[in-house]
């Protein structure tokens, strides 16, 4: 994939930031408005897929290298499990909302920082979903017919 015409590239370079910011907005306000980690994560993955379709695979990989993406994927899942385990330590059972029930944070409805561990879990779920969906679409695009021979850096990441 060499990328598309200059019109598509220009528009994509403007729009990608807006899509990314919209994904972050959807994630961090997921506990009081519609949205949440799943939708926001898919939107963030969509911004990188837009880069990949408009500029070609190489450009998208320079923006988000594959080892970093897979590490983000694993880190999101681990941190989400870590929130649950911290709840086990502090609150007495797995997945307990310890930040809210012990009133460690100011908790009033409709505030940005409220609801205890739910925004934290939303952020970790968003990172995990976004990174893994970017990885899967990138992997599916590797087997395209017009695949260019790779650089040595890409051989290293295969191992």
């Amino acid at each position: 994939m060499k990328g598309m015409t200059v019109v598509v590239k220009t528009i994509a370079s403007w729009v990608k930031i807006l899509i990314f910011l919209f994904g972050i907005y959807i994630i961090i306000t997921g506990h009081r408005t519609p949205g949440g980690g799943f939708a926001g994560g898919v939107i963030i993955a969509g911004s990188y897929v837009l880069l990949m379709l408009a500029f070609g695979r190489q450009f998208a990989e320079e923006n988000l290298p594959l080892p970093l993406a897979s590490r983000l994927d694993c880190a999101g899942a681990l941190l989400f499990a870590l929130v649950a385990i911290v709840g086990l330590v502090f609150g007495g059972s797995f997945f307990v909302n310890f930040l809210y029930q012990q009133q460690l944070l100011p908790s009033k409805a409709f505030q940005l920082i409220s609801a205890g561990t739910i925004p934290l879990s939303n952020i970790f779920i968003g990172i995990k979903v976004g990174a893994s969906l970017f990885l899967v679409i990138f992997t599916l695009s590797v087997c395209c017919k017009d695949f260019k021979p790779a650089t040595p850096a890409k051989e290293k990441e295969q191992n």
Binding site: G36, F38, V42, V129, S132, L133, V136, I137, T139, L140, C143
Partner: peptide, 24 residues
């Protein structure tokens, strides 16, 4: 359903991967 939709995207990617391999 919210979790099911995201899982369906993952399983779609898996099925398409199988299709592409079979085609090749």
């Amino acid at each position: 359903v919210l979790t099911s939709i995201v899982i369906s995207l993952g399983s779609l990617a898996l099925m398409i991967a199988i299709c592409i391999r079979t085609y090749e």
